[in-house]
């Protein structure tokens, strides 16, 4: 499996729609966070249904569970990925755009 990561941020400045600096970016962060929350909620829902089908009381089992080193590493990796995704638009811009000015005329 490839570990490559193609660029996630496009070149050039984002448009600013709200006058106050950072509002557009903050909105982007909130939406990305909501996306992650949505995916997580769906996964939890599926997990509950799967376990219920096998007669397992998930909430009780979670409280009794003790994390291993491998668990800690996996959760740490996922936490970092989550932060990178949520804060993607606050990172550095991609390399600058080429001028297209002379293409815009008739």
């Amino acid at each position: 499996m490839s570990t490559r990561r193609i660029p996630r941020k496009r070149r050039g400045q984002r448009h600013q729609f709200f006058e106050a600096d950072g509002v557009d970016e903050l909105l982007s962060c909130v939406l990305r966070l909501t996306s992650e929350m949505s995916a997580l909620s769906e996964r939890l829902y599926l997990a509950e249904r799967v376990l219920e089908g096998k007669g397992i009381d998930m909430a009780g089992e979670i409280e009794r569970y003790r994390l291993s080193e491998a668990d800690e590493a996996a959760l740490s990796h996922e936490r970092q990925r989550l932060i990178e995704t949520v804060l993607a638009q606050l990172g550095a811009s991609g390399t600058g755009t080429e001028s297209i000015e002379d293409d815009l005329g008739p």
Binding site: R10, F17, D24, L27, S28, L31, R32, S35, T85, A88
Partner: peptide, 14 residues
Amino acid sequence: SSVRTAAQEMVFDV
């Protein structure tokens, strides 16, 4: 406009 831009960027991200 702000939400549409963010959603467009998220398309490629996801």
